[in-house]
Write a protein that binds this DNA or RNA. Sequence first.
DNA 1: CTTTCATTTCAAGCTATCTTGAAATAAACT
DNA 2: AGTTTATTTCAAGATAGCTTGAAATGAAAG
Lengths: 117, 117
Amino acid sequence: MQEPRAIAAFSSLANQTRLRMLKALVVAAPDGMTAGAVSEAVGASPSRASFHLAKLADTGLVSARRQAREIIYAIDFAAMGALVAFILQDCCSNHAAVRACCGLDEGQSPAKPGSQR
Amino acid sequence: MQEPRAIAAFSSLANQTRLRMLKALVVAAPDGMTAGAVSEAVGASPSRASFHLAKLADTGLVSARRQAREIIYAIDFAAMGALVAFILQDCCSNHAAVRACCGLDEGQSPAKPGSQR
DNA sequence: CTTTCATTTCAAGCTATCTTGAAATAAACT
DNA sequence: AGTTTATTTCAAGATAGCTTGAAATGAAAG
């Protein structure tokens, strides 16, 4: 991931509505949600939801596909992973302190409670 | 890390000048750099550099301390790590696909070349 | 106590982003 | 063809963020 795309991705995440959309889409993964469902989930008008979903799709953090009358948005975990990799590698030069702070490098289990930090 | 702080942090990273400052500060870690040095490193006027450094400091991604006439900025790796943790845990619910995409969960060595991805 | 150096603060103008509601598109159904 | 449902696009106004250069602060040195 290059700098311009990373900046666009960070910009996408720097908004409450979009962050909440993303969280809803994580819960709904890998199936995704219709634009209307996302709109309801975050309490935004259809037009406003469309605006923010378009931004998330532009940056590649989510994908969009039409299914009959509905448009289904789904999170792209690979893109999210690439963004994390950008922070870790490009920004922080793989500095151990950064990796340590997010509970990595000490075991493989993704969600072991209490083991992070 | 809570949502508002994460949003502010993403906002900080969503800017070329600040991203480059951060990279310079990673290289200069853990000592840090004077505001003037950062200013030169990214090719920004003192006033512009001060504006962006203040933003980075506000969000806690960098720290500032006065040393005689100079002000020394240093990256806060813990804060960077907390932001990565926010993406991984709060945003992505520790989804394995995200962790996999950044070369984690397959070995502990932080910077082993060729082993990531 | 004035000068010098490093940095910040301020005010102005500019650009980008967000919100709102109305109108347009797209697909299915009658 | 006309209607309904789902979503996007558009235009307008509001808010936030960026850049610039000048003025102000803070700290050391003569």
